[in-house]
Simulated scan of single mutants.
Amino acid sequence: MQQSQRLRPPTEKQGRAHANGVLAQRQLEVGHVERATATWHDFLDDYETLSSARADDHFHQMMAGIRPHTGNARVRELDESARTLAAMKA
């Protein structure tokens, strides 16, 4: 999945955001919190410019998924970035 992301044209933001959302969720499910955090940061880079119900779903899954991991500094950074972005999009 990561390799397909590297090959995806930069203009395909919606597809890349969806794939990153799925990948990050799977990474978190298997306990790779820091990898998931990095992937979600990539997701947020694309999400910032999207208007998509599916991307919104990934965003809400991300916020719920990271909640139990807020003891991790990288998760806290992700949470702060996500909240800032959500406020800008509102």
Rank of each mutant, 00 (worst) to 15 (best):
A64L: 05
A86N: 09
R16L: 07
R67S: 05
G21A: 09
G21T: 11
S81F: 02
K13L: 14
A87H: 09
Q14T: 09
A86T: 04
A86G: 02
D79N: 09
E48Y: 09
S51D: 13
E12Y: 10
G71C: 00
V30K: 00
A55T: 07
W40I: 03
P68Q: 03
D45C: 10
H60N: 10
E29S: 08
A87S: 12
L85D: 11
P10H: 14
E34D: 15
D46I: 04
L85T: 04
M88D: 15
D56V: 14
A24I: 02
R8M: 11
K89N: 15
M62N: 05
A24S: 07
H60V: 09
A87E: 11
D56P: 01
L85N: 11
A90C: 06
A90H: 15
S52P: 07
L28Y: 06
H60Q: 14
T70R: 11
P10C: 08
E80G: 03
D45P: 02
D42Y: 04
E77F: 01
L78T: 11
V22N: 13
R26D: 11
E80D: 14
K89H: 13
L23T: 02
A73Q: 14
P10S: 12
G65C: 06
H58L: 03
H69N: 12
T49Q: 13
T70L: 11
A17P: 08
A73L: 04
A73G: 02
E29A: 09
I66M: 05
H41P: 10
R35N: 12
V30I: 10
M88T: 13
L28K: 02
K13H: 14
D56Y: 02
R6L: 13
E12Q: 12
A73W: 06
E34A: 11
D46K: 08
Q2Y: 06
F59Q: 07
E48N: 09
S4L: 07
R8K: 04
G15Q: 08
G21R: 05
M62Q: 07
W40D: 15
A38Q: 05
H60Y: 08
M62H: 09
A87V: 10
Y47A: 14
G15D: 07
Q61A: 12
W40G: 14
T39W: 07
E12G: 08
G65K: 03
R6E: 14
F59P: 09
L85I: 10
H32M: 03
E48F: 11
E80I: 07
M1H: 10
A86F: 06
S52I: 13
T37E: 13
S4C: 03
R74G: 11
H69Y: 12
L28W: 00
A73P: 00
M62D: 03
G71L: 01
Q27G: 05
D42F: 02
M88G: 13
Q27S: 01
T70K: 04
T11F: 12
Q3S: 06
K13I: 08
D57G: 06
T84Q: 09
Q61T: 08
M1P: 05
F59M: 14
T37N: 05
F59Y: 11
E80K: 09
H58A: 09
A64E: 14
E29Q: 03
I66C: 03
P10E: 15
E34C: 00
D45K: 13
E80F: 07
E77P: 00
T70V: 05
H41R: 15
F59I: 12
Q61R: 11
